[in-house]
């Protein structure tokens, strides 16, 4: 939710009209959650058609794969390597897909699939909680998004808890670096 709010904030600062929506589901209780963000010269829509998203940002591999129907063919997918294995996978025959299998699922849809070790990057700057900012940084450079870096940074600072600004900014920059140096 932080990423979506920050992107909307950045787009607004960059002069775009924004729209979006959130499905919290039972995220805090181990369920899945997602948010949709649209921005542009015209007011967008809080919900989009499947197959229409320019970018899919996945904070967890399985959930990224679950939402792939929203990603347009040839769109950019930024996916964290994080695995949150659901309980049904530990107790039933629901096998959690491997990194290769997730890559395979995405490859049928796009060749712009970035599988990022977000947690490792975040931990370098202070902990897993900075993962959002790493992915947000990745988004800022992964696609021609029309938003300037200053807006990205200011919107981030507006959306993170007080006292964590420096760490989040560092994580944001690390996210950018991850994309720039991504080795396919």
């Amino acid at each position: 939710m932080l990423i979506s709010r920050a992107i909307m904030g950045a787009a607004l600062m960059a002069g775009f009209k924004i729209s979006g929506s959130e499905i919290h589901g039972h995220a805090v209780r181990g369920g899945s959650a997602h948010a949709i963000v649209t921005y542009g010269k015209n007011a967008g829509s809080p919900l989009i058609r499947t197959g229409d998203a320019d970018v899919l940002i996945g904070m967890e591999m399985l959930e990224a794969a679950r939402m792939i129907r929203y990603l347009k063919r040839g769109g950019v997918a930024l996916v964290s390597k994080l695995k949150v294995v659901p309980i049904n996978s530990m107790l039933r025959n629901d096998r959690y897909p491997s990194e290769d299998e997730v890559a395979q699922i995405f490859s049928r849809r796009t060749d712009k699939f970035f599988l990022l070790d977000v947690e490792k990057a975040a931990e370098r700057f202070g902990g897993k909680r900075l993962s959002n900012s790493v992915l947000y940084g990745a988004f800022s450079v992964a696609i021609d998004n029309g938003i300037d870096m200053k807006s990205f940074e200011m919107a981030l600072l507006e959306n993170v808890p007080k006292g964590t600004e420096e760490a989040n900014l560092a994580a944001f920059r690390e996210g950018r670096r991850l994309i720039m140096s991504y080795d396919v």
Partner: peptide, 15 residues
Amino acid sequence: RHEEKIDVIPRIAGL
């Protein structure tokens, strides 16, 4: 366009 749901395992929420 018919974007089928990808068949991935469910995620069951809990306490």
